[in-house]
Design a protein around this nucleic acid. Structure first.
Lengths: 191, 191
DNA sequence: GAACGCATGTAAACTGTTACATGATTAT
DNA sequence: ATAATCATGTAACAGTTTACATGCGTTC
């Protein structure tokens, strides 16, 4: 289980509640780790019980109270130990690519529709990544920030996320176009 | 559960045994779906029980006998139905990116070592993808194959896998280089 | 007062991973 | 003989997902 390490890594950035963490996992962290809110609430409870994070109650007037967490020295040691072990190859699960894999044997129209849906989502994600990068580097240019800025870890992973989504978008668009052209060519032939 | 659909999509390519399928999932299909052999054996049994694939015993003299499977018309309908539903966004889990996310707070050397390990694995995967693409398109050039070749689904997903690994390789290498430079700069400062 | 966003949790159902087990055949 | 590759499976355990449940405060 490495969800705990993803949570610890995300909490290095500052104090967050389970709810806030869920949002972070939905945007920036989602590039390299997927988790639903319920997983996070459960994992935060376990990490606190093990002393790897410590929680602090925050009383709010305008909203329900919340519990925010920070990484303890023991948590940092756990991350250090994790980084020393061989990283397993990443795992990926993409329903859309399963559909494309099968496209020679099933109707192409629904697959094209899915590709176009996902292209829009990708475009939106690209915008979010761009803004996150801008916010992180402030008024520095990218090269300067990469050489001297801090923290550089979140910047680097966000950069990877951006490239991944850009490649996704391009592939979704070119694949949709290609499948449409092939469908049109077959219609002309057949009709 | 969409492992079943990944298995069905992979079986469209031809008749395969669980063992052969495990190898296919380890190379080409691994770009968009991860599964260990035990999952495949269990899923094949379930799919056959539900009539979505049909198995056939193949007696071999030189090796142990095996059971190969093909997609039934019911299996094809199941795939068709699957393609008509909205594709959930893909999920990804990358330990290596978790480590990079935390790199400002832990020692950089082990992280750099992991990046270099993974860069080599990526380079090997890139070679496999290139050869797979060549084998699929035979003596056609890529553009011609994409327009008129068949099957185009496996070619398109393989192309996505190739691009992904190329981006990985580039990111692993540039990130390792950058972290090494930053570590060197800090040593000079501090020493 | 209905809907929405904030905030957290439990329980059940489903999936996925690991360890173990077996046995054939071929190559060294 | 010993290891490697082919071939398949069971059982125990770990992790993930979904459904359900609760309640505060603000906006429409």
């Amino acid at each position: 289980m490495a969800l705990r390490h993803a949570v610890l890594a995300a909490l290095l950035d500052g104090e967050y509640s389970g709810y806030q963490l869920a949002k972070i996992f939905d945007v920036s962290v989602s590039n390299f780790w997927h988790a639903v809110p319920q997983q996070l609430y459960a994992e935060l409870a376990r990490l606190e019980a093990e002393g790897l994070i410590s929680g602090r109650r925050v009383i709010q007037k305008d909203r329900p109270n919340k519990r925010v967490y920070t990484v303890t020295p023991a948590g940092l040691r756990e991350l250090e130990r994790f980084a020393a072990t061989a990283a397993k190859p990443g795992i990926i699960r993409e329903n859309l690519l399963v559909m494309v894999q099968a496209v020679d044997h099933i109707s192409a129209e629904p697959v094209i529709a899915r590709l176009e849906e996902r292209a829009e989502i990708s475009a939106a994600k690209i915008e979010i990544f761009r803004r996150t990068l801008q916010r992180l580097r402030g008024d520095m240019d990218e090269e300067t920030y990469l050489r001297h800025g801090s923290p550089v870890g979140p910047y680097l992973t966000c950069l990877r996320g951006l490239r991944f989504e850009q490649e996704n978008l391009e592939w979704f668009q070119s694949t949709a176009r290609l499948l449409r052209e092939r469908a049109a060519a077959r219609t002309e032939e057949g009709g």
